[in-house]
């Protein structure tokens, strides 16, 4: 199975997303509905020998595209198609923006 998400994210996108996500001083943000479940597989830290791609700090548009293609079945997957079907476009956009704003 191939993972286009393994493409490196653009540092500028990360910085932009971080500044947009600013606001009241909080140590961390729990994220939009659904986001916190993702980190059970998609680690915040680097995990040696993991075949599951990290999504923290990836471009939001890449994450959105992947989730939509998983959902439609256009991009083959094992578990992600079944998970993506639980989210609408707006929810996917919010989750993607949140992950894009996390440290890569």
């Amino acid at each position: 199975m191939r993972h286009r998400l393994l493409l490196p994210a653009l540092a500028s996108a990360l910085l932009l997303a971080s500044s947009l996500a600013g606001g009241p001083v909080r140590a961390a943000d729990a994220g939009p509905p659904g986001a916190s479940s993702c980190t059970g597989c998609h680690a915040a830290k680097r995990i040696p020998d993991s075949v599951i791609p990290r999504i923290a700090g990836r471009k939001a548009s890449d994450i959105v595209q992947f989730m939509r293609e998983y959902r439609s079945g256009a991009w083959p997957s094992s578990v992600m198609g079944r998970i993506a079907k639980g989210f609408d476009d707006q929810q996917i956009d919010a989750i993607a923006a949140w992950f894009a704003a996390q440290p890569e």
Binding site: C41, H42, A43, K45, I47, S50, V51, I52, S78
Partner: peptide, 13 residues
């Protein structure tokens, strides 16, 4: 492979 990667990830988290 996903199973073992998941275990490493969640126990690290």
């Amino acid at each position: 492979l996903f199973a073992s990667s998941w275990f490493k990830t969640i126990t690290t988290e």
